[in-house]
Amino acid sequence: MNHCPHCAAPAQPGWQFCEECGKHLGEPVAAEPTMRFSPDDKGLLDLGRVAGVTDVGLNRPRNEDAVAIGTQGPALAAVICDGVATSSRSETAAALGVSEGLRALLDACAKGEPPGSATATGLIAAAAAVAGLGTPGERNPPCCTYVSALFHEGSVVIGWVGDSPAYWIGPAGTHRLTVDDSAAGRLTAEGVPPDDPRFAMPMAHALDRWLGADAGPVTPKVHRFVPDSPGLVVICSDGLSQYLDAKLVAPVDHGSMPATAVRLLLGRALGAGGGDNISVAALACPVPEEDA
């Protein structure tokens, strides 16, 4: 099976137009990326094979999350940043982080960088931009977390700093791809039961990696895998993950369209309490060509 060079949707031999995005399959791939950025509060971002949404939630006075989605030829990408609530202008940090991160990531893809390298390039660009909003000696400079997802050349690559996670949703269920940058996050990843007293220790849930002028040198964490089945990559802020990890909301079907998936997950997080800002993005990953 072939794939559309513009949106990566499956395409049968002999087709002239993509049934997903409508573009001519023989048309040259656009040199410029297509990108969408979250508005101040509500609004669906939808590019077909990748979609995102953000919401202030039910208990916060303003939305300190931001989400961006984009495509570069067949590459699909999304970035989410969650402003650190204890920092100043955290919403500014999040908005700048997603825009600079996504632009640099897709630009690296256009230049032919391997997916892992492109992911690191995007994260480093976001880190530099957010750090530039403050000074190292400043009290509580603008800060945020960062997570990106890239589907390109049959592989999924996740890059992150902080506690905004990524998940793979496939036929076998939902699997977390990231480890939160906190003592509690590492304990959870090691399978330590939640009643372990170490979870109640002071600062157990405090971030030890973030983006900001006071973050110091940022080393990207990058995870790559090649799906052996169709599915969805989902990235989100902790306004969703707190419920998803606790199994208080149901995951979505792995065959859902991204726009449907993000709407459902947002609605379920709000239904579970909506205690924080909620941002979620999803990328559709088709069956690998060799298995089609």
Rank of each mutant, 00 (worst) to 15 (best):
Q72L: 03
R139D: 15
Y146E: 02
A184Y: 06
S99N: 06
L248S: 04
A172M: 15
K42R: 15
G116I: 08
D181M: 08
R62I: 06
H3G: 08
S155N: 01
P227R: 02
V226E: 14
W168L: 05
D208L: 03
T135H: 02
D208I: 02
F17C: 01
L106S: 08
H152C: 09
T92K: 04
G216R: 13
N63D: 03
V233D: 01
G154T: 02
A189K: 11
T145Y: 09
H152R: 09
P286R: 00
D46H: 10
G274Q: 03
M203P: 04
Q72T: 05
K247C: 15
P28M: 11
D253K: 12
C81F: 11
F225M: 11
V29C: 07
G273H: 12
A30H: 12
V252M: 03
G83E: 10
G132W: 12
D82V: 01
V147L: 07
D214L: 09
G170A: 04
L44D: 04
D65Y: 05
R60W: 01
R60L: 07
S148E: 08
V218N: 02
G137M: 09
L266E: 14
A68F: 00
V280A: 09
G83L: 07
T34E: 14
A128C: 13
S38K: 06
E290L: 14
L96G: 07
L105Y: 14
P114K: 15
F17E: 05
S117P: 04
S148K: 01
M1K: 10
Y146F: 15
M203H: 15
A246Q: 12
C4E: 07
A281D: 12
M35C: 15
R36A: 13
H205N: 13
T260L: 13
L248I: 09
M203S: 15
L44C: 01
G134K: 06
A108P: 05
A184C: 09
A31R: 08
L45I: 11
L96T: 03
S279R: 00
G267Y: 02
V156I: 15
E32M: 14
V29S: 15
G52R: 00
L102N: 04
A215N: 02
L283D: 11
Y243V: 06
T121V: 15
P258T: 06
K42Q: 13
D181K: 01
G274T: 03
P171F: 11
G159A: 13
V84K: 02
A183N: 00
G22F: 04
